[in-house]
């Protein structure tokens, strides 16, 4: 029996996803189960069996402690969400801008692309850790002039001119984050560039014949075609930011587990954070889908016709 193309594509899709699914079932599910178990019990260490799970007075005691007793976790959660609100648009706009620049025909384009993709190449654990340590020591350097991202002078100047404190500290916070933003933009640039390369040059030729300016061509041609990639990047940037080791919530969860040896509480925090991220991602996907003409939807419509 001959397999239909649709069926073949479905099987190919499953095959592509298989390594991830197998990994998820074999590795992640076990950890997720442990995480859930830890969070609903009190894990203690002892010299008899190594560790025991004591039942809690109230099943949600660890969650109550995370949100109602611990003053730091909710505070860091809010701060982290607030930071994401400005980081994500900045990373997306910056990445799109750089991708458009890198898509132009100019001498040394290969080198320029290489420079912006360095964060991806170097983001493997050890190299990334060495570079980030170097950047940190630079910013804590003995000579403040060695910190190229130090906003102290600008902050002082803006404060002297009477600008509102909150605005000044938001700006200086963004400047301090420049290196982080560049670091986080490597993959989004690559995804945008891939999207830009899929746009046939004929679209621009038609736009030009119709008398569209460059600005109009961007909004009428480039933006609609790459908008699905914006959604992909949005999701990627959200996850990357939320689960980064530099994220203050992640840091705190690890501190509670490793330094304070409170694994049950830390698990409750981690699981809550996981659920919050999922909720945010679903909301982001639903909201952006309303405004983005997503390719698959158009395709399905065609199939139905």
């Amino acid at each position: 029996m001959k397999m239909s193309n649709v069926r073949k594509r479905k099987i190919a899709g499953w095959l592509f996803a298989a390594p991830w699914l197998v990994g998820m079932v074999l590795l992640f599910s076990q950890s997720l189960y442990s995480l859930i178990r830890y969070s609903f019990t009190k894990l203690t260490f002892d010299s008899v069996s190594g560790y025991t799970f004591a039942p809690l007075g109230n099943l949600f005691d660890n969650y109550k402690e995370a949100f109602m007793v611990d003053t730091i976790f909710p505070q860091r959660l809010i701060t982290s969400l607030g930071e994401m609100l400005y980081r994500i648009p900045v990373i997306l706009v910056f990445s799109l801008f750089i991708a458009i620049v890198l898509n132009q025909d100019f001498k040394g384009r290969g080198l320029a692309r290489g420079v912006f993709f360095l964060p991806i190449i170097l983001s493997s654990g050890v190299v990334s850790s060495i570079i980030k340590t170097a950047l940190t020591s630079m910013s804590l350097g003995t000579d403040s002039s060695t910190n190229i991202f130090s906003p102290t002078v600008l902050t002082n100047a803006l404060l002297e001119y009477g600008m509102p404190d909150k605005l000044v500290y938001t700006i200086s916070g963004m400047i301090s984050d420049v290196s982080d933003l560049i670091w986080s933009s490597g993959v989004p640039i690559l995804i945008f560039l891939m999207g830009l390369l899929t746009i046939p040059t004929t679209y621009y030729e038609v736009a030009k014949v119709e008398g569209a300016t460059g600005w109009e061509a961007f909004w009428k041609v480039t933006f609609p075609v790459i908008s699905p990639y914006i959604l992909v990047n949005l999701i990627y940037t959200c996850i990357d930011g939320f689960v980064s080791f530099d994220n203050s919530v992640m840091q705190y969860i690890m501190d509670v587990a490793y330094d304070n040896v409170k694994y049950s509480l830390s698990s409750a925090m981690a699981l809550s954070y996981f659920v919050i991220i999922i909720v945010i991602l679903v909301a982001v996907i639903l909201l952006t889908s309303l405004f983005i003409p997503y390719g698959i939807k158009l395709g399905r419509k065609k199939e139905g016709n």
Partner: peptide, 12 residues
């Protein structure tokens, strides 16, 4: 070491 010591204690 600090991130693994509790697991090492738990697993003997």
């Amino acid at each position: 070491y600090t991130s693994k010591i509790a697991q090492m204690v738990a697993t003997g």
